[in-house]
Nucleic acid binder design. Sequence first.
RNA 1: GUGAUCGUAGCUCAGUUGGUUAGAGCGCCGCGUUGUGGUCGCGGAGGUCGGGGGUUCGAGUCCCCUCGGUCACCCCA
Length: 439
Amino acid sequence: MASGTTFRAPVGTRDVLPPETARWEALIARFAGAVERAGYGLVQSPMFEDIGVFQRVGEGTDVVRKEMYDFTDKGDRHLALRPEGTASIVRAFVEHRPLTPWKVFYAAPSFRYERPQAGRFRQHHQLGVEALGSPDPDLDVEVIAVGWDYLASLGLRDVRLLVNSMGTRQDRLDYTEHLRRWLQEHLDALDPADRDKVAEHPLRVLDSKRAATRALLADAPSIADSLSPEASDRFDRVVGGLDALEIPCERTATLVRGLDYYTHTTFEIVSDALDAAQSTVLGGGRYDGLVAEMGGPDTPGIGFGSGIERVLLACDAEGVFATEERGVDAFVVDTTDGRAARDLTTALRRAGIAADRAFDGRSMRAQMKVADRSGARLAVIVGPDELAAGTLTVRDLRAGDSENAQRTVPSDEILAHLADVLASPRSPDNDRTRMSEPE
RNA sequence: GUGAUCGUAGCUCAGUUGGUUAGAGCGCCGCGUUGUGGUCGCGGAGGUCGGGGGUUCGAGUCCCCUCGGUCACCCCA
């Protein structure tokens, strides 16, 4: 807090601590499960790359032009922290030349040097998939379906899938020119803040939020009218596939997305539960040509990225995906000299029973408080009496003050006894669930 | 990079027109006699008022700078 005397997490980063991390673990597991079921394998690639890897991906985009987190190492190598997932995967593909189709996924941090705000950080965490080696439109459908089903499995309902086609590389270029010329003719009707985009990056004008621009855009030429017949048919096939899988989508001709390596299909899933400026919870597209540009064989590819922070924000907004707070099975309370706690917790853990204990020889009252707070289901009590009698007292911390909440068992039967008690289901109203803390 | 707004105990916040030893709730620690948590009662610890400079007899309260949080623009997960 005091900037001069203490350290804090760098700007735009934050610590994720228990119990919130339990929700992260559950989310990642849900994602991994969904994509592994579809045959995607985990890739762990470096968090930083030669800066050229990312520059190759999009010279004109802000992501690499002004938001790159780059540095020079002691060997004078110019490196950059990964700003997005696809470039690293493509580099790895070119380097290792695996058999295609190469279907992979990742769960990794991304870095962008930009001012933080709601749902946007300098370090954020992305879950994503990439599938390289096939131009089949059904692969587009598969990738989108996997992403859609993943979000649905979290309980998200207030989301919409937007899809578009940028056509072939040539279609995209032609349309960009066409749009540029049209915008230049209507420059005065454009919101002043959007005018400087026209020369550099006319496509950017399409996702402007300004009223004047939006009004003008209603009459602007649409990419849909510029697609070559092949690209148009291909897009129909993708939309038809989504329809067959009962995944509702909205054709959105203004969806161009920020990375300019996209060809053909681009898509985005937005959450209407988020009123923040950042409502995109998952986005991606096809990037035929990117692999070749990276120096590899001409290989088509498609993928998406989804930000964990934003997905969780959307879950909070909809009140879904609460995760159960996992306490240990047994909490050992030792009011003798602590040796019993030391030995018993270890024995329980070795037997597969999650166990914790208090330290520092605190009073029984204090230890019971800690046991309660820990979320443990059972307290295993060792006092002078138990020690002398060779027994242990087992108390069910969720059973209230009922008669049978507590039993004393011989020490050498404790493992069997605990296994038996823990096997019985606990009542649902004692389950603790947790959403992330509202802030 | 631009703009707005905020910055008081671990957390959420009060702090009169600048005036003596800075408060509350929650949390934390201890106690309520003989070994039992979750309720209740009592007590306690914990703050260089983000940091630096200035104005003033005197500043948490005014001014400047700086760092940080939040939100928006740009752009994006």
